[in-house]
Design a protein around this nucleic acid. Sequence first.
RNA 1: GUCGCCAUGGUCAAGUGGUCAAGACGUUAGCCUCUCACGCUGAAAUCAGGGGUUCGACUCCCCUUGGCGAUACCA
Length: 551
Amino acid sequence: MDYNKLAELLFPHIKKTPEEYEKIYPQRNLPADAKVTRLGPSPTGFIHLGNLYGAFVDERLAHQSGGVFFLRIEDTDDKRYVEGAVDIIIDSLRFFGINFDEGAETAGGSYGPYYQSERGEIYQCFAKKLVKQGQAYPCFLTSEEIEEIRAKQEANKENMGIYGKYAICRDLTYEEIEAKINAGESYVIRLKSSGSTDLPPEEMRHIEVEDGIRGTLSMPENNQDVVILKANGIPTYHFAHVIDDHFMRTTHVVRGAEWLPSLPIHVELFEKVGFEMPVFCHTAQLMKIDEETGQKRKLSKRKDPELSLDYYRNEGYHPAAVREYLLTILNSNYEEWRAENPLAAIDDFTFTTEKMSNSGALFDLNKLNDISKDTLVRIPASELREFMADWSREFKPEITHFFEDDCAYIEKILDLGRAGDKPRKDLIYAKQIFEFISYFFDDYFKIEDDVPANASSDVQDILTEYLASYNHEDDQSEWFSKIRAIAEKLGYAAKPKDYKKNPEIYKGHVGDVSTVIRIALMGRAQSPDVWEIQQILGEERTRARIKQFMS
RNA sequence: GUCGCCAUGGUCAAGUGGUCAAGACGUUAGCCUCUCACGCUGAAAUCAGGGGUUCGACUCCCCUUGGCGAUACCA
């Protein structure tokens, strides 16, 4: 077989040589330890927490080392394309603080095009090269024929796939190939694997790869004649990955562990095509418990809408909180570092692949919420106010004016109890924050809780006394001593401890009295400090709410 | 089915042959306290099972089990 002739038959239109591409996409001019990473999403427009998780690793690795982080759209599967998806990907990631230096629709870059669908000639050039080397060949198997082979293999308990004796198109002569092509038969280009097909797995040659996260990986070499170019001339992921990451000069390929099984394919492809391999970093996957089965499983874009990034934006999680959370599950020493450096910028943390876990972590909403509280408590009220305004504009526009009209008022509310060494940590995410403070807005103020049963008959008396003694100028302790006085006068213990000692001689204690006031003022039995709230509400509204509750 | 990855409390995990096996979330007892939060002090809770190697194994090897993943002209 004259492989050169075959290559020309298959790829008559490919004129550029591999060497020319090496010149078009030269080595990047970067410091020796700078890392070049990439995110390669397919344009379905759906990204979930798991994608963010991976993107974060890429981003940190690149930007921490003075390298480059670029975006490549892996649109080799035309069935999956969704309009506007790329913008969604870029915007969502940007919201969470992840920015690309290069790639699709961003800062440009000279290693493009960054859409795989526009890189056809490059792939074909290297497919042609492999054909010339006698290491790839056209395969005319139809899907029905492949299905038959699969059925036979299954029946014989053999390994699945096209390899060895099943790779019947390997043996086609030039004339046969030419005839089929002239007859209009469609075909794919397959790798002619040099892996052994008749040895048991343990005797097969093993490849060794040094993984950035998992250390030395040893697995049986590939022996499958995988498809590298589909019938439409577009490459499969395997081939596109090898070509693109070489010519885009990626140094570190960060991808999910679901790619581990196909690593031998990639190794063989890199060898045959003559490229140096990047460092692979196979990340563990974010998991969740499936509600139906109760089992742990990988995040799924179809099944887990609540893990969509949009969900977190919708709920109003602050991007900084999500980043904190992701980093704590990404690097096991992050939490400790954060405890020691509570105020440090997130970029000051040295992210390493060695500190990444290689077993899948379960997504933990509790933990996210806890981290979010700690994160928000460090954010100044003015910034939180803006965050709330931005969030509401997008998801709850009818309340946006609250966060824009009277900034001073809102900021006092958001800062409620946050001063001092032991600040309150009430705020978690925007939706929750609004509910938490909604009683400050007259339109949303409503009585939600019942007064304590033991004080229900004294409500009028308590509030009458309260109004009578109320002085908006009182400081906090003056104010509270008046509450104590009212409590005593009406038969309640001024101190809860007294009540606990002799419950029979009291109707209740001062807490019951203040709860009545709380409910009149906030509609809730639980709230931050009443005095502070009154100061924010103002005297007029304070008195009005008490009176309204009495009527 | 075959192949691969993984395996410390409910969850995230430190640990790298000799530890009373860190820490965080959650749960829980209490303290603080006008409620709720915050904070503080405690508690319960983990090395999947079985074989080796070793004076000694959570740590190394093997098997089993379990979970996850891959077995596409999807990525």
